[in-house]
Design a protein around this nucleic acid. Sequence first.
DNA 1: CGTCGAAATGTAAGCGCTTGCATTGTGCGT
DNA 2: ACGCACAATGCAAGCGCTTACATTTCGACG
Lengths: 339, 339
Amino acid sequence: MPSTHIIPTLDDVAKAAGVSTATVSRCLNTSEKVSERSRLKVMKAVEMLGYTPNFGARAMAAKRTFTIGAIIPTMENAIFARGLQAFQETLYANGYTLLVSSTAYRPDVEAEQIKALIARGADGLLLIGYERDHSIYKYLERRGVPTLIAWAFAQDSALPTIGFDNRASMRALCDKVLDMGHKKIGFISGIIAGNDRASERLQGVKEGMRARGLDPNDMPVCESTYEIENGANAFETIMQGAYTPTVVMCGNDVLAVGAMQRAHEMGLKVPQDVSITGFDDIELARIVSPQLTTVHVPHREMGSRAAEELTRMVEHVSTGVSCQLDSSLRLRGSLRVLD
Amino acid sequence: MPSTHIIPTLDDVAKAAGVSTATVSRCLNTSEKVSERSRLKVMKAVEMLGYTPNFGARAMAAKRTFTIGAIIPTMENAIFARGLQAFQETLYANGYTLLVSSTAYRPDVEAEQIKALIARGADGLLLIGYERDHSIYKYLERRGVPTLIAWAFAQDSALPTIGFDNRASMRALCDKVLDMGHKKIGFISGIIAGNDRASERLQGVKEGMRARGLDPNDMPVCESTYEIENGANAFETIMQGAYTPTVVMCGNDVLAVGAMQRAHEMGLKVPQDVSITGFDDIELARIVSPQLTTVHVPHREMGSRAAEELTRMVEHVSTGVSCQLDSSLRLRGSLRVLD
DNA sequence: CGTCGAAATGTAAGCGCTTGCATTGTGCGT
DNA sequence: ACGCACAATGCAAGCGCTTACATTTCGACG
């Protein structure tokens, strides 16, 4: 089925317009360097032929793609959606295109995606969290691709980070929970291996407990992937243990919603029988009833700042400066004061 | 800040391995045509140099990228998430990479994205719905890029379609609603202009009403973008009109959830005071309470079938065959029998 | 009108890869 | 030991674009 489609090239346009390829190229890129007369001729030819520049060729010749890559753990729930949206909007405003891929939280997939994005000529990269194999950082360094880390903040990171302090944020929530009289906490965590956000959040709770003289080792902790169903299962596991918490804190909102659902199915009223908290404050948190107490994260601000800084890095006006943002608590119906 | 990073090329690898560039290339692509001995040498060199092939150059030389592009209206809600996930999984299994971009339901943005994806060398394209400007179809045809349309089914489409009958599906739900004794329906639709799914769904309801001798013109219809908040506003608008429906049917689940929320805020009990229905059966539908009555769509099957067919088209073993899938009703708590 | 500088354009050398074709190496039958 | 078929490799021509540099054009000014 060898179809002979005419895929017009720069040459074709040049011929049709009666100018050289250089003029066409200039017209398409730096149109101010071209006379109005030839600009018109060229535009007409482009239109007529249905010409679209070949990105690969362009990238190869210009050594620049105006593309930024972002690699996130998952697209399946909304955790990264809002931040990424802001990231892309800001990028777009600066003349860049965003390419996104996801890793399903698998480090090996992430490594692969990084290479793929670099192969595609990404001028810069956005990564989530700082915890990854050293070889990846070495590779990034050697290729000289500007890279920024978001959704986490670490003073001593090799790469610039922009985000919030996951541990302190969860600690603040934990303090609040304890203030409200809770003494028995259960915790549903995301998978900790290779995920600094998850482990920092767990640490935050433990830290809070210790500060009140409670032993974190008493706390039942259940690790679960970030899916509603699994959050539900984790909740059940915890509640069926010998140690019955009065509050189940969750590593993120998705898990918390799962927990709420299962609580309902088990005949437990939230918050009368058990309180539940989340993290992230995604849309879901206000859709469930009772609404979810959680930690609000400045997703949009983080996304757009990341975009600004990364473009600066790509354009060599900055070598990358870290930036810490604040989170805040959202106290809602799913958490109650213990009598 | 001119950093001199060594970005290794095929040439460097060839030199380091002591073979020709052709051998390295073959080793990386068709490794069966290379002796074990040189394969090892090459691999070692690749490893040592941290080589990653330049995608643009490769695409240009091979005229093939093993990349498929998908352009969807939005990533912000989960409507397309599950189907796209299946699409990408199947693609991946067939050795292809997926590139996704979204249009915010704007035809002009879609046209731009199509060109961008083609410029990036997409071997094939997945588009949502069939309603778009003729010039786009012409462009696609001229470039000879295999394109498949999903989330809709149309016998007479120029391009192969894979999906379900939006009108018949909504009609089935409407029939059910009428069976349950409802006579006064309100409808919250997605924006209809340029969106065949939205308009077909509305038609489905009108069709159902006519079949029972009801006048569709009596029905209050409110168009809204697919956001929870806007669905809520639309609900309020409809309920404050002179004509008070006993059921509000929605063009999709997101709108329906918004409607439910506002109903709650307005002190209306669902389904006692008003019934609400959705469309799509996304996860959200079972998270809200009462759970949402909706139309279940075989997202995953649609996605993976689309991937299969599109790869066949790209590999020239099919010119594209359409495929109609079935939807089904999910009757849940948000819809009640009218006394 | 001739001159000169700036603006506009053209020429052509790559960018890093694949692949058809030519060449070399290998193992086998006789 | 010789020749043959075939596997393995190398050579080099592009793929479509950008851009440094060379050349032409043009208008302004003396």
